[in-house]
C-alpha cells in the first residue's frame, strides 16, 4: 500500500472532524475521496501530509510512518491544495521553478522539469504572466503545475476543480489520468460525484469524518437497491396509472410530478419495455423518456438520507 491510514481521529474542541477514519491507497490507482463540504476530506489530507496534528491513529506512506520532518517521504509527494497557493510576485515560470526547486537540488533538472510541467498544463504561452493576469481555470492549472513539477510518486489533489470552467476542468481531469498513466498514484478529493466517477478507480465516500462506503464505482452502486431510474413526460398521468405501474416486477417507486412520471426500479432486463407496453396498451400518450443508471449521489443518498451537495 502507498498510503495506509488507520483509526485517524481529529477533534477541534468538541467537533469531531475525523472519526476513526481508515483508508488504504494501493500503488497506481486513482483513489477518490468523495464527500460533501465539511465531511472531513481536507482535514484528512492535511493530516496525511502532517500539516495538521491529529489526536489518534497512524499514517504510513510508502510503508514508512509519516511525520512533519519525514523529508524522505515528502520529496516523493506532490500536493495541490484546494486554494491556489502561488506567489503573486512571481511569474508562472518562476512559481513552478521555485516549488520544484524545493524538491530537486540539480539546477539543470529543475529547469527541465519546470518546462515539462508548464507544457503538461498547457501554460506555455502564459509562462511570463503574473498570476493576477490569469483566469480562474489557468490559475488552477498553474497550481497543479507547482504541485507536480518534481514528478512525485504520490500526488494528492484536494478539490482542484472548484470554481473552474468546464474546459479547464476537462483539461485538469485528463491531466490527472495522464499522470496516473505515467505511474503516479493519485488521491483525489472532491464533492463532485461526476468527476470522481469519471476518473477514480477506487472510491471512499466520507461523511462526518467517517468512511461510509468504499470500493470501485460499480461495487458502490451495487450496494444500493436502486438499479434504474426512468423519467417519462406525459400529460395523461393519473393516480390509477401510478398504482398499476407500482405493481410491475422490479418497480419499487412511482411518482407523478409536474407531468413527469418518475419510476425507480431494481435491476432488470426489460423494465423500460414493460412500462412502454403498458402506456401503449392504455393509449397514454408520452413525450421524452430518460433512463438513468444510479449515480454516486444515489449511493450517498441511500446511505445517509441526504444529497451529496446538501
Amino acid at each position: 500500500m502507498i498510503v495506509k491510514v488507520k483509526g485517524l481521529v481529529k477533534r477541534y474542541d468538541k467537533l469531531v472532524a475525523l472519526d476513526y477514519l481508515d483508508l488504504e491507497v494501493a500503488e497506481g490507482e486513482i483513489f477518490g475521496l468523495l464527500g460533501p463540504n465539511g465531511s472531513g476530506k481536507t482535514t484528512a489530507i492535511n493530516c496525511i501530509l502532517s500539516l495538521l496534528k491529529y489526536d489518534k491513529g497512524s499514517i504510513e506512506i510508502f510503508g514508512k510512518p509519516m511525520s512533519a520532518d519525514a523529508y524522505d517521504i515528502k520529496k516523493d509527494i506532490g500536493v495541490i491544495m484546494q486554494n491556489v497557493a502561488v506567489f503573486e510576485a512571481l511569474t508562472v515560470y518562476e512559481n513552478v521553478h521555485y516549488f520544484c526547486s524545493l524538491y530537486i537540488k540539480d539546477k539543470a533538472k529543475v529547469k527541465e522539469l519546470t518546462e515539462e510541467a508548464i507544457r503538461f498544463v498547457s501554460l506555455e504561452e502564459y509562462r511570463n504572466f503574473y498570476p493576477k493576469k490569469l483566469s480562474g481555470g489557468l490559475l488552477r492549472r498553474l497550481n497543479i503545475a507547482c504541485g507536480i513539477a518534481h514528478k512525485p510518486k504520490l500526488i494528492i489533489l484536494d478539490e482542484p476543480t472548484v470554481a473552474v470552467d468546464p474546459q479547464s476542468r476537462n483539461k485538469i481531469l485528463e491531466g490527472i489520468k495522464r499522470l496516473n498513466q505515467e505511474g503516479a498514484t493519485i488521491i483525489y478529493t472532491s464533492h463532485y460525484m461526476e468527476e470522481v466517477e469519471q476518473i477514480c478507480t477506487n472510491i471512499a465516500i466520507i461523511d462526518k469524518g467517517r468512511v461510509i462506503a468504499k470500493g470501485t464505482k460499480d461495487e458502490l452502486k451495487s450496494m444500493i437497491s436502486i438499479g434504474e431510474k426512468i423519467t417519462i413526460e406525459t400529460y395523461q398521468g393519473n393516480e390509477n396509472m401510478v398504482n398499476e405501474l407500482k405493481a410491475f416486477p422490479n418497480v419499487f417507486s412511482v411518482e407523478l410530478r409536474d407531468n413527469r412520471l418518475e419510476i425507480k426500479s431494481n435491476r432488470g432486463k426489460n423494465n423500460l419495455v414493460h412500462i412502454l407496453d403498458y402506456l401503449n396498451k392504455n393509449q397514454i400518450s408520452f413525450g421524452r423518456i430518460v433512463t438513468e443508471l444510479p449515480t454516486l449521489n444515489d449511493v450517498f443518498l441511500e446511505i445517509t438520507g441526504k444529497e451529496l451537495r446538501d
Binding site: 492535511n46 501530509l49 500539516l51 512533519a68 515528502k74 509527494i77 491544495m81 491556489v84 497557493a85
Partner: peptide
Amino acid sequence: AFNQLDIRRRNSAAPIS
C-alpha cells in the same frame, strides 16, 4: 507573501524544514 496560509502549507508539505 510568505505568511499566506496556503503558501505556508505548500512550503510545509515540501521536504524543507
